[in-house]
Design a protein around this nucleic acid. Structure first.
Length: 614
DNA sequence: ATACATACC
DNA sequence: CACTGGTATGTAT
């Protein structure tokens, strides 16, 4: 299993005992090494602590399934290759060379992208506000799950996404995981998301000055296109980013790391190189990019997680991007007909999908596509209790839909359940009429609040009525989690921020452009390597008319932009811009997590709601 | 189209 | 005490 440099390509011998799967699923891998602790010992330790849990049993099943599949494909590959003649192999080789050559056409070295990542963000904020913690092992989260660990805790092998109760044991018993640290007690801190959000706003104020269209991926990570800034100020990327990081540190007291590169993928990977409190640049030449990519383990490619890494290892015997490139022909055969194939081919050349997007006119869609709420709880069988939880979830989803701008209505609702065995089920219902709020919801006058409550209750009830029978189908059941999701929104664009991105695109590109908004505004395609559906101008028109016109257009086919009269788009953009300005004056602050605009006095509550009000 | 699995922070 | 939550997307059926 590809669990690290120790055993790069050895497939797990079937039936060789419980450690054979040496935790593919811990995700501890080439790039996720815990400093100061031995990876393998950490994996063993975690395994020992949890091998009898339902969780682990379930993970082992998934793991085994995945492993068997990879081995099957590997076997078929070997057979197919054995059957190929020299001539066939040669012609295939030539074909691949040509394809790689063709991909070079998409290489764009003209832009400078930057990814900024705050160092151990939540922990850094807490330690800033309580400096006595600095020397102690600190984890943000609880016994169930850790979201961030400081560097002291990392010396004990503690990492984000690790269950807290295991982390406690590791800190108490560092020798067991090969750490030379003295035994200690892990300090837990309950996350304070409102505070982290406040700090994130401060960093974003700074980011905005370097790229007004920067994209925040989370509270602690942002993608910037520095090209215009550098041209305007005549400074080097290195200097600009250093200055930006200095300003972030001065303003927030927290360090960050950054990567600079000719596209978002390269910048993202580079941001990991000199962490913490460092920056790294990949120069905009083909040679520099290839040299950088070549030594990279494939696992470092955003989008290549532990499963794909393992597949690549088992099926191709490949660990690094250089090997991946050399094995392009086999990559193609192994993943033929799958998006993964083109993703890998481009990625190993250091090509980011945003380059393709610009070239091909395919664009990233920045609108939200689904809204959901899920809760884990102590496993429960009682129907009345489960129904109550379902109703709570429906209420929460309804409130979040109401708080969206515009208020949401969706044609698909889904119930997710996780049994105490960790088996997950999803059941979705497609509707003719969307469930949710009218686009005009929330614009009421004096009786606005009362009406809002009434409508929210109505939507809650509609969701519940749809999903309760779905839950019923599963009785008797023993559940540890339920979740409610709404998608296929009537309004494709969901947040104010994204609306502003639309405007900026149209303004910069001019009114006769036929494509949607530039993918340069966000890293939407970064992980998948694939273009997302476009936002057509039709959506903008729809948005506009939705103000005056309540007809439900959700079932109408998308209007082709070609059918729009000349000059129409420009007017739409202007009207949109003026409405935006009005809304900004009228209504509170923009949630930095979801982009939804909420009244100022509800901002904290709203932000915390994203995280379950912890 | 639906369900399930993977990935990211 | 006991392995998250929200969103997107890829893959299989």
């Amino acid at each position: 299993m590809a669990t690290g440099s120790s055993a790069p390509s050895a497939p797990a011998p079937p039936g060789s005992g419980e450690k054979s799967h040496l935790f593919n699923f811990t995700g501890i891998s080439a790039n996720k090494a815990g400093m100061g602790a031995d990876r393998k010992l950490v994996a063993d330790f975690v395994y020992e602590k949890s091998k009898n849990s339902q969780y682990t049993q379930h993970q082992l099943e998934l793991d085994a399934k995945q492993q068997a599949r990879a081995e099957l494909v590997a076997k078929e590959l070997r057979i197919a290759e054995a059957r190929m003649s020299e001539i066939e192999l040669l012609s295939e080789r030539r074909k691949i060379e040509a394809e790689l050559e063709a991909l070079e056409k998409h290489r764009d070295l003209s832009r400078t992208h930057c990814v900024v990542d705050m160092d151990m963000f939540y922990a850094a904020v807490e330690i800033r506000d309580q400096p006595s913690l600095a020397s102690k092992p600190v984890a943000i989260g609880g016994l169930g799950m850790i979201s961030t660990a400081n560097y002291v805790a990392r010396l004990y092998g503690v990492r984000a996404a690790m269950p807290g109760f295991i982390a406690v044991e590791m800190v108490r018993n560092p020798a067991a995981i090969g750490s030379k640290m003295p035994p200690d007690e892990l300090v837990f801190i309950t996350p304070n998301f409102a505070k982290y959000t406040q700090v994130a706003m401060e960093t974003r104020e700074i980011f905005r000055q370097y790229d007004p269209h920067f994209r925040a991926m989370s509270l602690d990570e942002a993608y910037l296109d520095l090209t215009d800034y550098l041209a305007a100020h005549g400074v080097s990327a290195e200097a600009a980013v250093q200055e930006m990081r200095d300003r972030v540190k001065a303003r927030t007291g927290i360090t960050c790391s950054a990567g600079i590169g000719p596209n978002r993928m390269v910048a993202k990977i580079a941001s990991d190189e000199r962490k913490p409190d460092g920056q790294s640049q990949v120069l905009p030449t083909r040679e520099a990019v290839l040299e950088f990519m070549d030594r990279l383990p494939v696992r470092k490619l955003p989008g290549c997680g532990k499963v794909l890494e393992n597949q690549i290892s088992i099926m191709l015997g490949v660990q690094t991007c250089a090997e991946l490139r050399a094995a392009a022909a086999r990559v193609k055969r192994a993943f033929q007909g799958r998006k993964t194939c083109s993703f890998l081919m481009r990625a190993c050349l250091g090509l980011s999908s945003d380059e393709l997007a610009e070239e091909g006119g395919e664009v990233g869609n920045v609108a939200r596509k689904s809204l959901s709420c899920e809760r884990t709880f102590r496993a429960e069988s009682e129907p009345a209790e489960l129904r109550g939880r379902l109703r709570d979830l429906c209420r929460q989803v309804s409130e979040d839909m109401a708080a969206s701008v515009p208020p949401l209505a969706g044609r698909v609702v889904a119930l997710k359940t996780k049994a105490s065995s960790f088996e997950v089920r999803n059941k979705q219902i497609s509707l003719i009429q969307p469930v949710g709020f009218s686009p005009n919801f929330g614009k009421g006058g004096e009786d606005g609040r009362e009406h809002a409550e009434q409508e929210t209750a109505r939507v809650t009830q509609e969701l519940y009525k749809l999903l309760e029978p779905v839950l019923e189908e599963q009785f008797p059941c023993h559940l540890r989690l339920m979740g409610v999701r709404v998608s296929s929104f009537r309004d494709q664009r969901a947040t104010l921020d994204k609306g502003q991105q639309l405007i900026s695109f149209f303004q910069s590109k001019g009114s006769e452009q036929q494509e949607g908004p530039s993918a340069g505004a966000g890293p939407d395609n970064l992980n998948t390597g694939m273009p997302k559906p476009q936002i057509q101008e039709a959506n903008v028109i729809d948005l506009d008319s939705s103000q005056e016109d309540q007809r439900d257009k959700s079932r109408d086919p998308p209007v082709q932009s070609q059918s729009l009269p000349k000059g129409c788009l420009k007017r739409v953009v202007e009207r949109l811009a003026s409405r935006r300005a009005k809304r900004i004056r009228l209504s509170g602050v923009c949630c930095p997590v979801c982009g939804v605009r909420v009244p100022e006095d509800q901002a904290n509550r709203h932000v915390n709601a994203h995280y379950g009000d912890q």
